[in-house]
Structures are given as C-alpha cells and as structure tokens.
Design a protein around this nucleic acid. Structure first.
Length: 262
DNA sequence: AGTACCACCTGACGGC
DNA sequence: TGCCGTCAGGTGGTAC
C-alpha cells in the first residue's frame, strides 16, 4: 500500500537492513520494473557498490550508492521490500534481488509490476524531470493554503496531485478528509480558511500517526476510516453506512453523514 | 485547468 | 466447478 507512510516505512527498513553493506551481486528477475536501464547494466553497477544513505520524496525512495549515484525505487500499488537470508526461498513476486556479502539479501517485490526501479546520477534532476512537488510532510501551511486557493479541482484531487505535493494517494486522502469532516468531492473554490487549516492539520496528524504505526493497517486507530474502508461497513463515529463513489477518477470512501456536501 | 478514459499488469472476488 | 466481469492503494498519455 505504498503511499507516503508506507514508503517512509520501507526507507527505514532499508536503513536497518541494507546500509553500508557491500553488495555481492544483483539479479533482475523481471526487467519490466526497470526504467532506462538494462538488467545487465544494473547488475554490473550495483555489484561491489554499497548504499550509504536513503532519501524519500513523496512515494519515491532514493538509495544513495557510494560510486554510482542513486537507486530510485517506486512501489506502484503492490510493491514492498523484504530482507531475507540467502538460501531461503525468494519472497513472492521478487523482481529485483540484491545480495549482500553478509549472507542476506534484499528483494524488491511487486506483484503487479506497476512500480519502477531506475538508476540516476542526481535525485534532484530526477525530481525536476518528474515535476514532483515538495513532500507532503515538508510543506508549510501558507503553501498549502495557496494551493487550495488557486485550485479549481476537488479537494481529493488536489491532495493526490503529486505536482502540488508528493506522497498522498487514494487511501490517505480519504482518511485526511474523513478526519476533517469534509466531503471528498468538494470543490476547492468552496473551501474557506477554517476548513483549509483543518485539512492541513489532519494531513500532518494522519501521516505522522501512520508512520509511527509503520503504516500497518491493523495498528491504525479504530476511530479512523481506513480500517473500515469497505463498502457496507459502518462509520466508527456515527454508525452510518460508508459510501463509495468515483471522484476525480478514483474510488473515494466516505461517510455521507459526517462528511456533508454542504 | 480539470476530468474522463485507456494503458500498463496480476490476482482476488462475486455472480451466474 | 468454471468462466467472466470488476476491482484494486500507482503513474502517464490522449482527448475533450
């Protein structure tokens, strides 16, 4: 479920498992996840190098290499990292596997192959090329307020707009709006100062809490929408039925009682 | 500018 | 049981 909190959790996981260890070998199991590099090239570049630090912006993870720039990792809808002991069976849907000299390996798993792995010399250039906005946890309130003011889309669409700010996706945008008691299809031109502030605060709180709980759905507060984000389930607050509706092309879940259209 | 629709992929699920 | 349509947390392109 790779949105900002998930990717931040992967970043910390990579820090614990893969940093400052010599890479013995790399093997590409499915080249569809590679962007702008061939399996041979990637395998050659990673061999004998090591990761020195990690960075994240939005849903992109960057792992700095000592010699060869940055490994860029994007998780799509089904990607994750798994550290395992050599000799064990590969994690399911392993697409790229990195062996360290300590007898362990790190797998990039991705069932649906929608994620991407690349190698770039500058992560700033990469971000610029992608037109990626500042990270959702890095922006300040004036920036957010200005964005709402200048936008004529729905609030859900703005929250998920990676050029405006990076990191919030379909699930967490729903959570942020549920906690703000705002209807996801509300047009930004109808959102006043008070609600703008409420949404901004909810965004920070939701992302911070989710990171704290390692983005594990079973550990998220039961008062949140996320554990009940299914058709037919009840709102934890008013016990009304959660509704599903397509908004700006994505399935939005919300409580019609708590999030009135106004 | 914003939205709708399609594409990229695999796999789970419900209806018949 | 088996087949089929639909849906899923990602991005990116095209057409209105």
């Amino acid at each position: 479920m790779p949105e900002l909190p998930d990717v931040e959790t992967f970043r910390k996981y990579l820090n614990r498992t893969g940093l400052n260890r010599k890479i013995k070998a790399c093997r590409v199991e499915n080249k569809k996840v590679l962007k702008g590099i061939t399996p041979k090239e990637l395998e050659k570049k990673l061999k004998d190098d090591k990761f020195t630090k990690t960075l994240r912006q939005g849903k992109y993870l960057f792992a700095a290499l000592k010699k060869n720039g940055f490994l860029v990792v994007h998780f799509g809808m089904t990607g994750y990292l798994k550290y395992f002991k050599n000799g064990n069976v590969l994690p399911p849907h392993s697409r790229v596997v990195i062996n360290f000299t300590n007898g362990h390996s790190l797998a990039y798993s991705n069932q649906r192959l929608l994620g991407k792995i690349a190698l770039v010399s500058s992560f700033r250039d990469f971000i610029q090329r992608k037109n990626l906005g500042p990270d959702a946890l890095e922006i300040d309130y004036p920036y957010f307020k200005e964005g709402v003011k200048n936008s004529r889309s729905t609030i859900k669409s703005l929250l998920m707009n990676q050029e405006f700010m990076a990191g919030v996706g379909n699930i967490y945008s729903d959570e942020i709006l549920y906690r703000s008691k705002i209807y996801p299809g509300l047009n930004n031109s109808k959102i006043g100062e008070k609600d703008t502030k409420k949404i901004f605060n909810a965004m920070r709180a939701v992302l911070a809490t989710a990171i704290e709980r390692k983005a594990d759905p079973s550990k998220l507060p039961s008062a949140w929408l996320l554990p009940h984000r299914n058709r037919g389930e009840s709102c934890p607050k008013c016990k009304g039925k959660i509704k599903k509706k397509k908004i700006s092309g994505r399935s939005a879940y919300f409580c019609p009682e708590c999030q009135k259209k106004r």
